[in-house]
Computed example of a mutant assay.
Amino acid sequence: MKRVLLIDDDKAVNFFNKRVVVGHSGFEHIKTVQSGKDGLLFLEQVLSGNEIKPDIIFLDINMPAMNGWEFLDHYELFNEDFRSDIQVIILSSSSNPEHVKKSIVNYEVLDFINKPLSFSILDDVLETVNDASLRLANNK
């Protein structure tokens, strides 16, 4: 069972995606925040032991104040051991091929998927995350 942090500035998208994740049997806990800054603050709370560490972060790219790219710049400053078992997945309405390329080339992003979430997308996410976890375990 995977724990999720969903970062998206759109309340309606967060509401919908949270309902989809909660209804899927592969997930046990979901936290939603509405900005990259709030996502970073949440992760600081995880480090201090006040919140549950997510296994997956679904991250929107286009957000005001701190967009997804800025979040990733700050996120990658966290200790590598802390980040090693968190999978970041871009969840965006953008289908810009440059965004996909940028996310994979410049950041430790596992996947780039289009909104909204669905059960079949979550099934694929679980498979991708499990495959990545196996590769990571074999490389240790």
Rank of each mutant, 00 (worst) to 15 (best):
K2I: 06
K2Q: 08
L5S: 05
D8N: 07
D9I: 10
D10S: 13
D10N: 15
K11P: 08
F15S: 06
F15L: 11
N17G: 09
K18Y: 06
V20K: 01
V21M: 11
E28P: 01
E28L: 05
K31C: 03
T32Y: 03
V33P: 01
V33F: 06
Q34L: 06
G39F: 04
G39Q: 05
L47T: 12
L47V: 06
G49I: 11
N50F: 12
N50V: 04
P54R: 09
P54N: 09
P54D: 10
D55Q: 11
D60N: 15
I61C: 05
I61Q: 07
M63T: 05
W69L: 13
W69M: 10
E70P: 07
F71K: 10
D81K: 12
R83F: 02
S84H: 10
Q87S: 15
S93H: 05
S94E: 02
E98K: 04
H99K: 00
K102F: 01
V105I: 09
N106Y: 04
Y107D: 02
L110I: 06
D111H: 05
N114M: 08
P116A: 08
L117V: 10
F119K: 08
L122I: 03
V125T: 03
V125P: 01
N130E: 13
N130A: 13
D131Q: 13
R135W: 09
L136P: 04
L136D: 14
